[in-house]
């Protein structure tokens, strides 16, 4: 067996793949959030930024391919680990009380499914325009304003971004631990850095649809 196959067949190996791809996605999400916040600088800034991204040409496709690969590997290892973990406890306890595990850690899987549905919808919403009432390939600012006129769409974004925040609250902390990149600590379950990442990403993304709905952005 090659070392790669052996690595991938182990739970630790799958978790490492999960952590590496997760951290790649976190990097994207932070950059994406910062880019999107240019909505608050006005239509010219936002459209200019979108045009700049498109002008990178092949580079954009390399980034897209990388993100796609990361997402697929992340999901495949998540599904496989979930099946292994379920099989490891065939009989549930009549009574089991979680002691210290966070809600975020216990909702990773369902939160991940919400995010996967969101990503498909979101790509159809703002990238392809399939789910968009009046999509323009050059007017990103206008697309966002029009796209967030519906309360339901905004509500879905708000829920999805809350899931993302929860996912990151556990994931950012756990990812670096899985890779062995943290120092030993007297209280290893504490995670202030991950909390800040989660809050900033959640707030940054949630601000845009909410601001549009409230008419602050128009």
């Amino acid at each position: 067996m090659s070392w790669q196959m052996r690595f991938w067949s182990s739970t630790v190996g799958k978790k490492v793949v999960m952590a590496v791809t997760g951290i790649m996605l976190v990097g994207f999400v932070i950059a994406h959030m910062l880019g999107n916040l240019q909505m608050f600088l006005g239509a010219d800034a936002m459209n200019g930024y979108a045009a700049f991204l498109k002008s990178t040409g092949e580079l954009l496709w390399v980034a897209r391919a990388g993100l796609f690969a990361a997402a697929v590997l992340h999901i495949v290892s998540a599904v496989q680990l979930t099946l292994i973990n379920r099989a490891a406890r065939p009989t549930e306890y009549a009574k089991r009380e979680p002691q210290v595990s966070t809600l975020a850690s216990r909702t990773l899987r369902v939160g991940g499914v919400i995010l996967a549905v969101f990503i498909v919808y979101h790509l159809g919403h703002f990238t392809l325009g399939t789910f968009h009432p009046a999509f323009s390939h050059t007017g990103v600012y206008g697309n966002v304003i029009i796209g967030f006129q519906s309360v339901w769409v905004v509500l879905f974004y708000v829920i999805a971004m809350a899931s993302l925040g929860m996912h990151l609250f556990h994931g950012v902390w756990a990812g670096f631990r899985t890779l062995g990149l943290q120092k030993r600590s007297a209280s290893p379950i504490q995670r202030s850095a991950a909390l800040w990442v989660a809050i900033i990403v959640w707030a940054g993304f949630t601000a845009i649809p909410v601001a549009v709905l409230l008419g602050i952005l128009n």
Binding site: N85, S101, R106, A174, P188
Partner: peptide
């Protein structure tokens, strides 16, 4: 099973 870093074991 694998480790999800729930933290329950340590507790």
């Amino acid at each position: 099973g694998g480790c999800t870093l729930f933290g329950e074991c340590q507790e």
